[in-house]
Design a protein around this nucleic acid. Structure first.
Lengths: 191, 191
DNA sequence: AAATCCACTTGACAAAAGGCAAGAAGTAAA
DNA sequence: TTTACTTCTTGCCTTTTGTCAAGTGGATTT
């Protein structure tokens, strides 16, 4: 069963359009599934996936100059997942996107997205709203990184995305929070 | 003289459209100027300015829970300036946008932007490209905050936006970099 | 000129976080 | 079961950054 009801509801929650429009948009998406540790995107590929994640947990990461793996972001269910730089600029990605748990969702390609963007006014508003939403989230994360201690950042993650702490290994969470494994381990103990 | 040549060139540098389209877009913008310390936006207002900053330096800031002023971002010339949350979601802003130096540029309102967005395909691509560009910049800043020391962050700012260090007071730069005034002062000395 | 204000610097000490290495605990493989 | 891995924890010590308070120097006001 490839029921797109969750995607329709997600679209309607993001932008004020008719249910009919939302269903038309949702129907252009293609179902896709991932096993634990599968990749949606690898470094050096040009991303061609704009994914609505219906269920599961993913993360994006890259390797820094010291060769260490840095988790940039986590994606939880009922969200859009994509690597904006590679997807929109059509350039090779530096980052990976990987499933942490089993995942399922619906995807469209860059070409499909662009066609929708220019032909369906409702999708234009949706696409823009997603960019705005993610941009705001990124700014918020920025603010949190600067103005909160590591402990507060951890507590914030705990209250906003508890799934992450449940499924993601400590080292991923640590690099996401900008601390070392040891420091995060100690923070946990103190709570 | 309200020559929009710089705006036309900026548009053409962001998106591949015809010069004619770029000029038509540029001509819908209205000239605007700011004196030092003038505000483009204050807290509790709904932002209605999408500004191309042709010349000058601006910053956006807000007050944290302790009542301290935190500089969130600097805007340099030849960039788009706006407070995305308030402007696109039509809600009251928590942030201020203020001119650090004398500034001049060209603006449009939310309504004007939306009209262009839905009637001019070239502007759709431009608008999306700006969101993508700013989003990527925000992600990059995020990465830098997490994976660089305060000293490296300062050096990076020094090499990418030297105007800021020249015109903005130390305390603005310090809160932007996520360190105290004292720490930034000490960092400077060591260089 | 004296007083005031502001931006910045500096010193002394405290707290937060990192580096490194060893060890515990769990999982998977042979 | 034993071995090998990986993940996570912990101790010891260093580095970075913060806090608080005092002090300097420049600009403005009276």
């Amino acid at each position: 069963m490839n029921n797109r009801e969750s995607l329709v509801n997600f679209i309607l929650s993001v932008v004020k359009i008719s249910k009919d429009d939302a269903e038309k948009i949702a129907n252009t998406f293609h179902p896709i599934e991932f096993q634990e540790k599968d990749y949606l995107l690898r470094a050096n590929e040009v991303s061609d996936d704009y994914l609505y994640l219906e269920r599961g947990l993913m993360r994006t990461f890259l390797y820094n100059l010291e060769g260490e793996e840095i988790t940039i972001d986590f994606f939880t269910e009922d969200n859009i997942v994509f690597e904006i730089t590679s997807f929109f600029n059509r350039i090779r990605s530096e980052a990976y996107i990987q499933a942490i748990t089993k995942c399922k969702g619906f995807r469209i390609s860059y070409e499909e997205l662009n066609t929708l963007f220019h032909t369906k006014p409702a999708f234009r508003d949706f696409g823009r709203a997603i960019l705005v939403k993610e941009f705001i989230a990124s700014q918020g994360r920025n603010y949190g990184m600067i103005n909160r201690t590591a402990k507060e950042r951890y507590q914030n993650l705990l209250s906003t995305k508890p799934q992450i702490l449940q499924y993601a290994p400590l080292k991923c969470i640590a690099s996401y929070l900008g601390v070392t494994d040891s420091t995060l381990s100690r923070l946990r103990k103190k709570m």
